[in-house]
Measured scan of single mutants.
Amino acid sequence: MGFKLLSKLLVYLTASIMAIASPLAFSVDSSGEYPTVSEIPVGEVRLYQIADGVWSHIATQSFDGAVYPSNGLIVRDGDELLLIDTAWGAKNTAALLAEIEKQIGLPVTRAVSTHFHDDRVGGVDVLRAAGVATYASPSTRRLAEVEGNEIPTHSLEGLSSSGDAVRFGPVELFYPGAAHSTDNLIVYVPSASVLYGGCAIYELSRTSAGNVADADLAEWPTSIERIQQHYPEAQFVIPGHGLPGGLDLLKHTTNVVKAHTNRSVVE
């Protein structure tokens, strides 16, 4: 069995187990497998329904001669939608809004960016022009300005110390501490036991640490421990890039980060 097929099978099995364990909360999309990078042309966006009122959005972007996937989250909030992270750029984010209108038909009224990198804030200006209120932590807003990236308009308070959590509509926002970046936030959907790890969490097929220019490698494993301790009931975990899975993604990420750190020390 090929690795790609095995990865998709694991996603399907995880979703099936969740649907059985929580039949009222989960209505997993039966329309197909989780979209992969090879299936999404740059400039297009796919939506994948995880649970009743919960979707991931998947886009792709060219970077350094390669094409990478990027995940975000959409959560229903009454007759409105909360968006977590842009679709990595203005063109993708405009396509995301169009796809949401086509498939869901509810307005996106608020959006949260989970850290300051372009795959999370690139497209904020498109959201703002569409009347979406954009939010991020003060740290993310400051770092985005320093980096020359787009800056969300509103500040999220109460997320300055490791372990801080605040309720934001249908989700809980959690600051686990520094990891992929010093400002990275985690998003949890309690009604569906869905954990969105953003770039602080890796997919299972990833074996290298990737972009760690703004990471705190020493603190990252401790931050992941905080996530595990705060959300032990999480059933569906979405990484910032690639295929979702279960809580095993947290341990896998820790292993990859520690291996990278150990290699760096040896070198």
Rank of each mutant, 00 (worst) to 15 (best):
E157I: 10
R76D: 04
K251Y: 13
A90R: 10
V194F: 00
S205G: 09
P69W: 14
R141T: 05
I20T: 11
S160E: 14
P138T: 08
G89T: 05
F236M: 10
L143A: 08
W55C: 03
V166F: 06
P138E: 10
N149H: 10
G131P: 05
A259V: 10
A90Q: 11
V42H: 08
R167C: 07
T254Y: 15
L97G: 00
P221R: 08
G163L: 04
Y188E: 01
G158F: 07
E267N: 08
G197L: 03
A179D: 02
S7G: 08
V126T: 10
A209C: 06
L173Q: 01
S27P: 12
D183R: 01
I201N: 05
A98Q: 13
R142V: 13
T93Q: 00
G245Y: 03
A90G: 14
D29Q: 10
G72V: 02
D29T: 10
I238K: 02
S137W: 04
A130L: 09
Q235D: 13
Q235F: 07
L10I: 15
G163D: 07
H57R: 03
G242S: 05
E172M: 05
S62N: 12
T134W: 01
F26L: 15
G197F: 00
V108T: 05
I100M: 05
N92I: 04
R167M: 12
L73T: 01
L243M: 14
G105V: 07
V189S: 03
L13T: 15
V132K: 04
E267S: 07
M1W: 05
G169P: 05
E145R: 14
Y12E: 12
P232A: 10
L204N: 09
F3Q: 06
V67M: 15
A19W: 15
I84C: 00
G122I: 04
Q228C: 02
N71C: 03
V28T: 11
V37Y: 14
A215F: 05
Y231M: 05
T140W: 02
P239E: 01
R141G: 02
Y202K: 06
G242F: 03
D119M: 01
V112T: 03
Y188Q: 01
I151N: 06
V67S: 15
R226W: 07
G158Q: 08
L250E: 02
A234F: 03
L82Q: 00
L249Y: 04
W88G: 02
D77T: 02
Y231S: 02
V146N: 13
I40P: 12
V146A: 14
V256C: 03
R167A: 12
M1F: 05
I84W: 00
L13H: 13
S162G: 14
F236V: 12
S113E: 01
I186L: 06
Q103R: 14
E44P: 06
D183H: 01
V132E: 02
S56M: 15
I58R: 08
Y34S: 08
T86W: 00
L195M: 05
A130G: 09
K4F: 06
N262R: 11
A178H: 10
F168G: 02
A259K: 13
S223L: 03
